[in-house]
Design a protein around this nucleic acid. Sequence first.
DNA 1: GGATGATCCGAGAGCGCTCTCGCCTCCCGT
DNA 2: ACGGGAGGCGAGAGCGCTCTCGGATCATCC
Lengths: 346, 346
Amino acid sequence: MTETVPRPTLEAVAARAGVSRATVSRVVNGADGVREPLAERVRRAVEELGYVPNQAARSLVTKRHDAVAVIVAEPETRVFADPFFARQLRGISKELTAHDNQLVLLLTEDRDDHARVGRYLAGGHVDGALVFSLHIDDPLPELIQRAGLPTVFGGRPDWSGGGKGVVYVDSDNRGGARDAVRHLLGLGRSRIAHITGALDQTSAADRLDGFRDVMVGADPRLVVEGDFTPAAGERAMRELLGRCPGLDAVFAANDLMAAGALRVLREHGRRVPDDVAVVGFDDMLPIAEQTDPPLTTVRQDIEEMGRLMARLLLRDLDRTTSAPEDAGGAPSGVVLPTTLVRRASA
Amino acid sequence: MTETVPRPTLEAVAARAGVSRATVSRVVNGADGVREPLAERVRRAVEELGYVPNQAARSLVTKRHDAVAVIVAEPETRVFADPFFARQLRGISKELTAHDNQLVLLLTEDRDDHARVGRYLAGGHVDGALVFSLHIDDPLPELIQRAGLPTVFGGRPDWSGGGKGVVYVDSDNRGGARDAVRHLLGLGRSRIAHITGALDQTSAADRLDGFRDVMVGADPRLVVEGDFTPAAGERAMRELLGRCPGLDAVFAANDLMAAGALRVLREHGRRVPDDVAVVGFDDMLPIAEQTDPPLTTVRQDIEEMGRLMARLLLRDLDRTTSAPEDAGGAPSGVVLPTTLVRRASA
DNA sequence: GGATGATCCGAGAGCGCTCTCGCCTCCCGT
DNA sequence: ACGGGAGGCGAGAGCGCTCTCGGATCATCC
């Protein structure tokens, strides 16, 4: 029946406690300057009436919303299909709720959505934004930046438009890739191939860079471009086997492609890791543990990334409202370390 | 520098267009009763000033927020770890944004969170709630119902407290399970085992019921309780093999457990599907396609579930504000069909 | 003991919007 | 040509809150 009972207002609480609205407001918001006996009376009135402040009214005057938008671009892509997203979100959520902020989720797929998001942000419904923009040339970052909202990006945005004040959190894709390749070298492998991710994503580009850092002057035929899908992993592996039958190791830019490569390797009678060692990236569970053999891979702390993004944003918000200095020396990028997880494939 | 430029107000637009606030409001909200030339002038003023309505001010008077909460309980569990969640969320998001509603995401993990969520909902920040409550005995559903907010549940809530007006969307777990088992029978299998999910979740219980519907009077030793994890799948499969070495088919309550079972089967030298046919549930990509052999499984349209949940809620919201009749004859549960996806494992 | 702060509390304005109400205009019928 | 009705538009109140400012209260110091 949802017979919406009119919720008690500040006024009502004030009347019940026999004080003014201002006093109730002070007590409710934890401001000092109210003597104990009075404050106690107010608290009791709040309790008895079940008073809960009306956020809309409060926002109207404070111009704060205690809400931040989380914008995920193009959820069709892999990032949405895998458990990453959920983990990241959990990290964000934890940090946000710990600071009494709400999480408004915006998923975008096409240009129309972008316009809508732009309007939404400009509309001043939220205090800041956390943005996951996956592709180079995505118009979203610029759009958002223009809205003038404090923003933190997830993953290094390849945003030509001047990365001056751009704050982002990323994991150490390049360093992780280096670790993976060095591990392979340490295993005595020398003909190491790389299956890249979709190179219009900075993570893929960075992993490729990491590979090259270690394998300077490697045979260019040992690098095949993929797109993060298992099918691409299979295709790339077949191509590699054709080009360089003598290869003894493969570093795939993610676990999904590594799984695909594993299948093709088995199909061709190559034993893993005896003949060919395989390393993935992401430590995407449950994939990495379910392959045969289980995958050696590079793990990133997804949840911590989310947490950190939220933390950086909240810090920014505090500063914007209190001390309006800085806006220049802020650490523009935070890179989280990765760890190599050894399983059976390498 | 984010030098927040004071955003134009209705007042400003009115001044610029040379009309009253009321008229601008009418135009902005699409109400009729404004003659064209005037309306056009207003629209131009809106355009020129880049006016965007202040949602807080609007909510203050309309008591509508055009926002709904999506509450996900205990994201530690499997549902959060797999891609389901993201898909569902996408469905919800699409439907919501199509109707200009915002999505406020609330993830809860423990009792404290429950209290917080309760307060939040009672606080009247959102117009309704979409709730994913996974476990039987979860206090959340009742809490929410008490808040008196229109609510739609994802998955059949096993909520003893009277499912009178409870609206939920679920997929046909029982029917899907029946299809899976019948498919196995159709393959000429007769000694069919079942690995259940965590039976404190209605989905697992329903799938077990479906299994029993078809396998009436089956040897009880052919049913082993699992918990939806791959490890449980392995353990259960081992146990089954010990108990009934002659089994010729396994129906696992989800793909993760099926994958575990597959491994154990291979380890014991049983060929799939020749010796033992295996069927999973969920069609969880990329797992189902990556196993060896690829998994025959029961697919549910996750995204559609999300969409439908949102649609039902929005419908409810409309009704609450406009026609306050009904509140009795509403369809309390909507069950979405499942489809069997044939791959190589059965 | 009276002036002097310091502290506590209330009055009141105002945030940006919606919505009712009443006035004014314009069109129609006769 | 005039009365009446309908429809377009503006004035103003008020949603529930915060916050400034001034008045009241009380302790403190000479």
